[in-house]
Design a protein around this nucleic acid. Structure first.
Lengths: 232, 232
DNA sequence: CCATGTGCACTAGTATACAAGTAACGTCGG
DNA sequence: CCGACGTTACTTGTATACTAGTGCACATGG
């Protein structure tokens, strides 16, 4: 324990089994392939994924921190029900972090950074024209990540994404709406424009409205899948 | 895996071994008892704490998410050096979350909630008069927690606290300054006053200034303990 | 004396075995 | 027929054993 090494040149983490399992399970929960309320058996999942319980449990522990599962000792692990408060908490966290980030990004963005945002925006417009929702999702994520990166605090994106599980689940449960894509692209365009013009207040306001559009579909989802929601 | 249970009445977590180990290690790192750069041996720590490697590794994994340790596969686990960017990231996250929370708290706080804040404040004044720094630390934490709670999003406090490791480490490394306590109490008083008067902008501004006082001691710490800092 | 190669002691990651506890189901008695 | 009780089959939590890989030190050859 005495050897104090300063060389942290190795990649911090890579394709750990636990990391991979976490990503798989999170995706399954967010898409409701593993539906809310479902009990998860560690043994069964381990066998299914071809790993042992040890890395699997690590993944479940992280999912618990994301509030996507509840682990009850000596009883079981369950996919959490969708609850209004959890969704609103996620929205609150994301709004707080990203609004602070877009403010700071507006003040310190570089030419190259702005260029990156606009390239992304152009790609989004192509994805919209081709009705390519999958490409759009990736571009959407990357735009928000890039904005946080330009703020100098990319950690905001990491935390926002992490806390975003409940919102993602609601979003993925929404039927792909034709008007949805064009509305999102329009809002993104307004955001980037505000950044380019150096108006932090306006950028923040655009982002805030943008993030709240997702929340607005909550009641719709609830009426379609009442069995996924917590009884209040 | 088929049994879908809705009764999540059990307490979510309790005194797990991993939880306990996490708290112990975090405290040791924050107080620099385990100094930056120090290599942590899983075997040694497990023996020292009287637990097996399994829960210990869970605790280390959480500390990695807090950026308090770096785990390099097949090489070792190390306490992270203090870096300006990590400290600034922590400050950014805390500022974003708590400022959003105090805003919302100001708008929706109840009489009882305000009463709670003022009781805390009075206790802080007593702790200041008695120069009881330990009591003050607890009251300080509780005040910030209570404000987040009154916002309706206590999760803001959980995340803020979690991201706050680097800031805590800097703060704990500071010598107990006589003027420090009275300044903090004064700032807290201003914050609560702004909440009571229903002025969200002012409350946010007071909190922002309050949080940045901690950051201001960074250079001082750095000159006193250069060996704890990352070479840039 | 220096350079090079090999072994060793250590690391984290993973798999497996064991312990403690819960709830549900079946059985036995009234 | 109904209720209480005990067994059983599951759960998560923890400890231990094993695997793969790293860097350092020491021995050996030039």
């Amino acid at each position: 324990m005495e050897r104090a090494v300063n060389r942290f040149t190795r990649s911090p983490i890579g394709g750990n089994t636990g990391e991979r399992v976490y990503a798989i399970l999170r995706e399954a929960i967010v898409t409701a392939e593993l539906e809310p309320g479902r009990q998860l058996s560690e043994n069964e999942l381990a066998e299914l994924l071809g790993v042992s319980r040890t890395p699997l449990r690590g993944a479940l522990a992280r999912l618990r921190e994301d509030r996507l599962v509840v682990i009850v000792p000596q009883l079981g692990t369950f996919v959490t029900m969708i609850s209004r408060s959890a969704v609103e908490d996620a929205a609150f966290v994301r709004e707080a972090l990203e609004c602070a980030a877009i403010r700071m990004a507006t003040e310190r963005i570089t030419e190259a950074g702005l260029e990156e945002l606009q390239v992304n925006l152009a790609a989004q417009e192509r994805a919209e024209a081709e009705h390519d929702a999958d490409s759009f999702d990736l571009l959407d994520e990357d735009l928000h990540r890039a904005i946080c990166q330009q703020s100098g605090h990319e950690i905001a994106w990491a935390l926002s994404r992490r806390a975003n599980g409940h919102l993602d689940r609601v979003r993925r449960l929404s039927l792909p709406d034709n008007t949805y894509l064009s509305q999102m692209v329009t809002e993104h365009r307004s955001m980037v424009a505000a950044i380019a013009e150096g108006k932090p207040d306006q950028a923040e306001e655009e982002l805030r409205r943008h993030l709240r559009t997702v929340l607005s579909s909550l009641d719709q989802i609830r009426s379609r899948h009442p069995e996924y929601f917590e009884t209040e």
